[in-house]
Design a protein around this nucleic acid. Structure first.
Length: 1029
RNA sequence: GGGCGCGUGGCGGAAUUGGUAUACGCGUACGUCUCAGAAGCGUAUGGAGCAAUCCAUGAGAGUUCAAAUCUCUCCGCGCCCACCA
């Protein structure tokens, strides 16, 4: 007789076994790279409260998937770590004075104990902790990469300020105008903040979504958050003033119906022109009133529209209509251009405003049934069928066509330019807190004030006074640069040695803040110059550089295009070999820019330029030789303008958090680090002069933006992960997390990964192949669990009472995985009973034949219809059939995350086996395998007795055999006019004709037919016969 | 206001995607074991009816031999977004 099921004993035993045997530690199997599987869960924040019952839901789900994958022969990485920076720990430190690092270590130890008690197949050897200097060294290094590529910048801007937490918040962290964490209404405050330019990745983030397998709501939420809208910026002349007004609109098709302009009180136009408004006094008074309102109040729906006339009119070029210009608070300064063109006929807010102000309302799109009558009621505003009216050359066109036609027209007339707008804002990356990664920059006044030099090298036949060179020189000089634009003596018949001879003396004057710009062949020259140069320079900008090999054919094409040139020396210049090793470390930041209508773009890219160099492509400037002014270039070159912020050299990373006396943020809003003068005052790594450290720290989204990369090689101290291991493991095959993270964390980490891909340090652009989400676990009262409600369930207690296996199974059984479910401790009882039954089945194992039919009949276990066959054979076949149905169902359900029905099917199988008098060991061992992902400890214990000697975790996942799954008898339902009237028990391979015949012979059916002849008989294979009379 | 989703026994939830509605579990009732209780085990369990049958998937209509599933109109609930031009 087996002993009683004792989960505590079994669970401890097998947890120790897995740990001792290193069962779940993985190493890369580079030879079979296609058989890897990387499954990921969102790593927990190690709070003082310990594990919450919400955590085990995704952890168990992915543990089940991972365990199944191992049994299917995959090399599975299922890692765990801790997202350890965060406010709760800091707040605890403020209260108690205990160092956050110490508290964190203690919390992690507690989490680790709890997680291990649940028997997860994590590879604990790869554990990461974002607050460990060995980890955040790389977070800091990556931040410096953003900085070097001009994607991190400091900006004084009104930020969301939480007066309680004393910290700035990202837009994404503000929920309905309140702090996401503490619910305090958010104030606006001006503060210098580090920003990451995620908006530059808006398109890539949107495009990337098309290549990944995310559950629909996650994809849609990301798309909405990025909020791309295509429209046009239209500039209107303003009567009597020198200043035209520019508005952004997504509905230019309705422009014939534009009757007013509304300006944001805090918008650019109002700020610049306030002094000149004829109605200045009234406007000022209105703005003062607006300022009393929070953004929250201004954004309130259904509010009565207010506004004040400025005294100016803008002219609608299409109609000549004099559009009065108003200042109104329903227009927001940070949306579009901070100004809108009012079309009251086709926008409800515009309509309400027009009614308040008594403005004209013109219909330009017909309503239902071709209604073209004037619009008088709000309901009519958005009744649009598609045909334009009262719009001259647009009349009769559908909206989309009209939109394109009018945009073409406006652009042709020079009144406006198409514009893509995004809802996405740049990422506020500064926190005025102690417990985060220090930002590894120092501020050096000396470096800031030093005059920077720019050396611009022209291309083949270029000169100092050609193309954009004079213009850029002037613009850069205006901004304090010293610009050198030499003309090469051999510009028309270029000879590399000559060029270098002339350029070297100039380049030798350059230092680490200075810039070299090379256009076309000058780009090639710049690289050769760097080869020769002993000193390091700051920035290199290659503008459509001649980097690809110039073949004979290419040369012929060029000759045909411009036959007047002397090409005799170009090819040897162009194709001179480069030593990238010598060049790479000579520049702090390398950039290349191409125009997409430039032939050279096709052959140059990441493969030619060194890792870490940024490449961008713009449109509309063929080889950068046509336009005299190219603002894109100026923007690019200005990235090198010294702001005084100097990055620490990598050798000085990690910049560790110093010990401080107090963790409270200062009242000025600076972080507690600001009070550490001995830490703050330092020397500049660039010039050696006096400098101050940045005292802001990073948000806790930083460390979690790349943790999945670190798991691939967590102990590497040379790089954040080795390229081979990254190539082997990434992308993550399956990432499960909470819906609440689909906009914040998921977007940030995608951005971070795409950037790392662009600088060539990770192998894939998209970090996660597949994304799924779990629903929340609510308290027994149906409310969100929280300490204040007192409805929190403690997992420790549940494991103590029912065992980890029962707990795991219940969490998966309680309801559909993606939906919110209520906790019900009673439910655990049922699952525990199920496991007891599985345990009890041991008694029935026997190699010999099952008992005689007579006993089975006696106990009512054998259906009389089967009396002809041997009972044992039949009962075993029945078990086998259900067993195979279960293999199919469990295998499929795990893939689709229908864990609840997988367990239900296992319960059915066990109930069936319980009815049997005897059980074959192979049937039992298959059950154990199917159960093992859900209840791994119990499964291991039973496998040690009934398994085949192989380690359970790596035993082969049972294979479904459709033949064996076939049932020996099936039930066919007979319907008459859709109502079930009888059922027949038949062999599964019965023919259609035969079953139809049997159906009509049925006594009950005869009765129901009442002698009528069936009109139609429908047979659904294996299910039913439907008779229609 | 916009978008997404949901509504099935006393409760959590199933339903091969249009094919026997209520699988599996909880709870409940009765039986069994026990000095007794708990835990087991067994049987029953959507509603009405002695029964044959009839009625049931938020309400109402439609398509179909057949609808929880598809279509339309309501009602109720949840989440996300929102004077975004």
């Amino acid at each position: 007789m087996p002993k009683k099921y004792d989960p505590h004993k079994i669970e401890k035993k097998w947890q120790k076994f897995w740990e001792d045997q290193k069962t779940f530690e993985v190493t890369e199997d580079f030879k079979h790279a296609e058989k890897k599987f990387y499954s990921l869960i969102e790593f927990p924040y190690p709070s003082a409260e310990g594990l919450h019952v919400g955590h085990p839901r995704p952890f168990t789900a992915m543990d089940i998937v991972s365990r199944k994958r191992r049994m299917e022969g995959y090399n599975v990485l299922y890692p765990i770590g801790f997202d350890a920076f965060g406010l709760p720990t800091e707040n605890f430190a403020i209260k108690t004075g205990r160092p956050p690092a110490e508290v964190t270590a203690k919390n992690i130890a507690n989490f680790t104990r709890q997680l291990k008690a649940l028997g997860y197949s994590f590879d604990w050897s790869r554990q990461v902790n974002t607050s460990d200097p060995a980890y955040y060294k790389w977070t800091q290094q990556m931040f410096l990469q953003f900085f070097k590529h001009g994607l991190a910048y400091k900006k004084n801007l009104p930020i969301n300020w939480c007066p309680k937490d004393k910290t700035g918040l990202a837009n994404e962290e503000v929920i309905n105008g309140c702090c996401e964490r503490c619910g305090t209404p958010v104030e606006q405050r001006d503060k210098d903040q580090w920003m990451l330019a995620i908006t530059k990745y808006a398109d890539k983030l949107l495009e990337g979504l098309k290549t990944v397998d995310y559950i629909t709501p996650a994809r849609v939420q990301q798309e909405n958050w990025i909020g791309r809208s295509e429209g046009i910026n239209i500039t209107y002349e303003v009567e009597g003033s020198g200043a035209p007004v520019t508005v952004f609109t997504t509905r230019p098709d309705t422009n014939f119906g534009a009757t007013f302009i509304a300006l944001a009180p805090d918008g650019k136009f109002v700020i610049e022109n306030l002094e000149k408004f004829p109605e200045r006094v009234k406007v000022e008074k209105y703005i003062a009133e607006t300022k009393k309102k929070t953004d929250m109040e201004r954004a309130q729906a259904g509010k009565k529209k207010t506004g004040v006339f400025t005294g100016w009119y803008a002219i609608n070029q299409l109609t000549g209509f004099k559009m009065p210009m108003y200042v109104s608070d329903f227009v927001l300064g940070n949306v579009g251009t901070g100004a809108l063109v009012g079309v009251p006929g086709h926008d409800l807010r515009n309509f309400e405003f027009a009614i308040e102000m008594g403005l004209e309302i013109i219909r330009v799109v017909v309503g239902p049934d071709g209604d073209a009558s004037p619009i008088t009621k709000p309901e009519q505003v958005q009744e649009e069928t598609g045909a334009m009216v009262n719009s001259e050359f647009l009349n009769g066109l559908p909206i989309m066509e009209a939109k394109n036609k009018i945009m073409d027209y406006i652009e042709a007339k020079g009144w406006g330019k198409r514009q893509v707008n995004y809802k996405l804002r740049d990422w506020v990356f500064s926190r005025q807190h102690y417990w985060g990664e220090p930002i590894p920059l120092v501020y050096c006044e000396n470096c800031k004030n030093k005059k920077q030099k720019v050396l611009i090298i022209h291309g083949f036949t270029g000169r100092a006074d050609k193309n954009w060179l004079p213009w850029v020189k002037k613009e850069l000089e205006l901004r304090g640069f010293e610009v050198m634009t030499p003309t090469m003596t051999t510009t028309d018949r270029p000879i590399l040695e000559k060029w270098l001879e002339e350029l070297l003396p100039l380049a030798k004057q350059l230092g680490e803040d200075d810039v070299i710009v090379g256009h076309s062949l000058g780009g090639k020259a710049a690289l050769h110059l760097l080869e020769k140069l002993k000193n390091k320079i700051g920035y290199l900008y290659l503008v459509a550089p001649a980097l690809a090999t110039l073949t004979d054919e290419d040369l012929e094409i060029k000759k045909k295009k411009k036959p007047e040139r002397d090409y005799s020396t170009v090819q040897s210049f162009w194709n001179a070999p480069l030593d990238w090793q010598k060049i790479k470390n000579k520049v702090f930041s390398g950039n290349a820019i191409f125009s997409n209508d430039d032939p050279s773009v096709h052959s140059v890219g990441h493969d030619v330029l060194p890792e870490g160099w940024q490449v961008q492509t713009v449109s509309g400037y063929e080889h950068f030789t046509v336009e005299p002014e190219i603002p894109v270039l100026l923007d690019l070159f200005l990235q090198s303008k010294h702001t005084g912020w100097v990055p620490l050299p990598e050798s000085e990373l990690p910049l560790e958090l110093p010990a401080v006396a107090k963790y409270q943020p200062t009242d000025t809003g600076e972080s507690p680090l600001a009070t550490m003068t001995s830490w703050v005052n330092t020397t500049c790594p660039r010039c050696g002069g006096e400098a101050r450290r940045e005292t802001d720290t990073m948000p806790n989204w930083a460390g979690s933006s790349w943790y999945f990369l670190r798991y691939t090689d967590p102990n590497n101290d040379k790089e954040f992960a080795s390229p081979e291991k990254l190539r082997y493991w990434t992308p993550v095959d399956w990432y499960n997390g909470g819906m609440e993270h689909t906009v914040l964390h998921l977007l940030y980490s995608r951005f971070w990964n795409q950037f790392l891909f662009d600088i060539g340090v990770v192998p894939t652009s998209e970090p996660y192949k597949k994304r799924t989400s779990h629903g929340m676990i609510l308290g027994p009262d149906g409310e969100k669990m929280s300490k204040s409600r007192g409805n929190v369930i403690n997992p420790d207690e549940m494991i103590e009472k029912f065992g980890a296996d029962a707990f795991r199974c219940y969490i998966m059984f309680m309801g559909p995985f993606d939906q919110a479910v209520m906790w019900d401790t009673n439910g655990l009882v049922g699952v525990r009973r199920f496991l007891e039954k599985v345990w009890g089945l041991q008694e029935k194992i026997g190699e010999s034949s099952p008992p005689a039919l007579s006993i089975a009949m006696e106990r009512g276990l054998a259906p009389p219809s089967l009396a002809k066959e041997g009972w044992g054979e039949v009962s075993q076949r029945q078990t086998l059939s259900i067993l195979h149905q279960t293999i199919k169902k469990v295998s499929e359900d795990i893939e689709a995350m229908r864990f609840n029905t997988a367990i239900a099917k296992l319960m059915e199988l066990v109930n069936e086996m319980t009815k049997q008098i005897s059980l074959l060991p192979t049937h039992y061992s298959t059950l154990i395998q199917l159960l093992s992902p859900f209840a791994p400890h119990l499964a291991e214990e039973l496998w040690s007795k009934f398994g085949d000697g192989t380690p359970l975790a790596y035993s082969a996942w049972p294979q479904f055999d459709p033949e064996l799954a076939k049932e020996s008898i099936i039930t066919i339902v007979i319907q008459i006019n859709g109502k079930v009237r009888d059922e027949l028990t038949v062999a599964p391979d019965i023919s259609e004709d035969e079953i139809k015949k049997l159906a009509l012979e049925s006594e009950k059916i005869h009765k129901w037919l009442e002698g009528k002849t069936p009109k139609k008989i429908i047979y659904v294979k294996g299910r039913l016969v439907s008779v229609v009379v």
